[in-house]
């Protein structure tokens, strides 16, 4: 059984150790926070200058001045702090974020990531903080479906879409597998979703999968 979106987020969250400062991109990456147990102290950084996000607010306890990068209302964890944008992105670009989790359109075996623009889209492209995170975070993990809705591989030899960052992805979590990106080698299978075979994953992948 392939992982559903919640299970993918949970699988990724299992690998986040206590003490890391983590930036979660908008969309599915945001769900990762729901799966880190409160007993494990992980500091969630939001690009708009919140260091130490807590869970979503309970109804009636919302503060309209507290939002995350996806502009959703948030709470603060104990120990949280605020900075402005220059300092928030100094933290990101200066290599102080242990892990960034982003969504993706394509990940290539050389670690290239494409996740901000597609040629199919005639509306204006939006980049936000993705390029800063790709260039500056210590580690970049991508969480995404293994293929597009019409079954095309998103894990490929070389990206076809415009790049967000070069050789920046360290690991990919999909509905079928967890893959490490190893320099000079490519994709190495770290884990498979329960009941999913290597052959099945390889058939849905546009690059060679290596085993450890």
């Amino acid at each position: 059984m392939p992982f559903n979106r919640d299970q993918m987020a949970a699988r990724l969250a299992d690998d986040v150790p206590e003490g890391w400062c983590v930036n979660l991109g908008i969309g599915m990456p945001t769900m990762v926070a729901n799966h880190v147990p409160p007993t494990r102290e992980v500091i969630f950084q939001s690009e708009n200058g919140v260091i130490g996000m807590g869970p979503a607010p309970k109804e009636g306890e919302e503060d309209p001045w507290l939002i995350n990068a996806g502009k959703q209302l948030i709470t603060l964890a104990r120990g949280a702090s605020f900075v402005g944008h220059a300092d928030s992105f100094a933290m990101i670009r200066g290599g102080h974020i242990d892990l960034c989790v982003l969504g993706g359109f394509e990940v290539a075996e050389n670690g290239d990531l494409a996740n901000w623009a597609t040629s199919e889209n005639d509306t204006a492209p939006a980049v936000g903080g993705a390029m800063d995170l790709a260039a500056g975070a210590k580690r970049l993990w991508v969480i995404m479906e293994h293929t597009t809705k019409d079954g095309r591989p998103k894990i490929v030899e070389r990206c076809g879409y415009p790049l967000t960052g070069l050789a920046c992805v360290n690991r990919v979590y999909t509905n079928l597998a967890v893959l490490d990106v190893v320099e000079g080698k490519g994709f190495v299978v770290r884990d498979l979703a329960p009941g999913v075979t290597l052959e099945e994953v390889q058939a849905k992948t546009g690059a060679t999968l290596h085993t450890q």
């Binding site: 944008h85 100094a90 980049v127 903080g129």
Partner: peptide
């Protein structure tokens, strides 16, 4: 279109 951190740093 400017990456967000670059936008902030250019202003700073």
């Amino acid at each position: 279109l400017v990456p967000q951190g670059t936008l902030a740093e250019r202003i700073r």
